[in-house]
């Protein structure tokens, strides 16, 4: 079924395009440390709000222009006509650890340490926006996957069990989901975040946010899965398995779950953007990811500064573009998946 689904995606142009672009985005996120020229917290207070550096071809090699700060009050930089810094590939850099455990001393590209390469400019403390964008994608892109994984696991387990066994269990779990749905989520997040943030470092805060988002999110999934399970439960093939003496958990796993899979894949894909936007919104409000970590939402919140608009520091808005593109890709892919799964969904559920 899953391999079949994959083949069908490949038969549709939109599907191939979205899947390929998303794959590229996730590959970049995985190798963000190698691709980005600087660490996300690497400051240079002499070069704040630096515009994107120009790239030129000179003497058979790629070089970046070197800029001079003309007016510090307006952060006005001007390229110096004769000075160029060559771009080195697989350049030596300060030691860092890829994925937290592989020691590395090189990055994909870089310039001599006296100069800086800012492909997308620098922010208020002279950090490279391009590098931060890549590092930030690790948070922003993974939060959706992890969140969906948690909500789906809880939702399917709770919804499947209560739909299958019914009775008091069903009653209790459904009242619980109603309770959760009645919780005003934004207040809950703000309250939990405020109460707990003192005890956590930034990595744990990331997990905390995912936890909060999925804790609120699973009830919807659980209710839909319960409904689907109820309707599947009275289909004769389930009775047949019971009549054979099959155990309830095998029936759930082998007979019910595969019939829910199509639905799950589609809704999961369509709800990932919700998590990405949720993280962005929380970080934007200052209750999500915190400095010195980075995420797209956090970067956007820094672009709230009036200066960005007054002085046209457009490059600080690129995280918004990244969110936009990712969300569109997920939605389009979800639509393609729904087209593939829907005709079956209609006849079988």
């Amino acid at each position: 079924m899953t391999s079949n689904l994959f083949r069908q995606i490949l038969q549709r142009p939109t599907g191939v395009l979205c899947a390929a672009l998303l794959a590229v985005l996730y590959l970049i996120a995985i190798f963000a440390a190698v691709i980005s020229p600087y660490a996300p917290s690497d400051q240079n207070l002499a070069k704040t709000y630096h515009p994107p550096t120009g790239l030129v071809w000179h003497d058979g090699r790629l070089c970046v222009r070197v800029y001079k700060l003309v007016d510090p009050t307006e952060a006005l930089y001007r390229a110096e006509p004769d000075r160029l810094a060559p771009v080195h590939f697989w350049a030596k850099s300060a030691p860092y650890k890829l994925w937290g455990f592989i020691p590395m001393e090189h990055r994909l590209f870089g310039v001599d340490s006296a100069e800086r390469i800012y492909l997308l400019g620098s922010d208020s403390t002279g950090r490279d926006v391009f590098s931060r964008l890549l590092y930030g994608s690790q948070v922003s892109l993974s939060i959706g996957l992890i969140g969906i994984f948690i909500t789906t696991v809880i939702g399917v387990t709770v919804g499947g069990l209560s739909g299958y066994f019914g009775g008091p269990l069903d009653n209790v779990t459904m009242r619980l989901t109603e309770l959760l749905m009645a919780v005003p989520d934004l207040y809950l997040i703000i309250a939990l975040r405020a109460a707990l943030s003192a005890y956590f470092d930034s990595g744990q805060i990331f997990l905390l946010i995912v936890g909060i988002l999925s804790f609120i999110g699973w009830s919807g999934t659980a209710r839909v899965i319960r409904g689907l399970t109820l309707s599947l439960r009275n289909r004769p093939f389930i009775h047949a398995a019971e009549a054979l003496g099959q155990t309830p958990f095998v029936i759930l796993w082998k007979h019910l779950f595969p019939n829910l899979l199509g639905y799950l894949i589609v809704t999961s894909t369509l709800s990932i953007p919700g998590y990405i936007l949720g993280e962005a919104a929380l970080s934007f409000l200052g209750i999500g990811i915190q400095e010195p970590s980075t995420s797209w939402g956090l970067m956007l919140s820094q672009a709230q500064d009036m200066k960005v608009f007054m002085l046209n520091f457009w490059w600080l808005l690129t995280p918004g573009l990244a969110i936009f593109v990712t969300v569109i890709l997920f939605n389009a892919l979800g639509d393609v998946l729904r087209d593939i799964v829907d005709p079956k969904l209609k006849t079988q559920v």
């Binding site: 079924m1 289909r235 004769p236 093939f237 009775h239 047949a240 398995a241 009549a243 054979l244 003496g245 082998k254 007979h255 595969p258 019939n259 899979l261 079956k344 079988q348």
Partner: peptide, 23 residues
């Protein structure tokens, strides 16, 4: 009752819904 599941079996009316479509 499990041993009796081996001795007593059932055939259903609806041939379209009595087989799991994913198996």
């Amino acid at each position: 009752f499990r041993p009796y599941r081996k001795k007593i079996q059932i055939i259903f009316q609806d041939p379209y819904n009595s087989l799991n479509p994913r198996l």
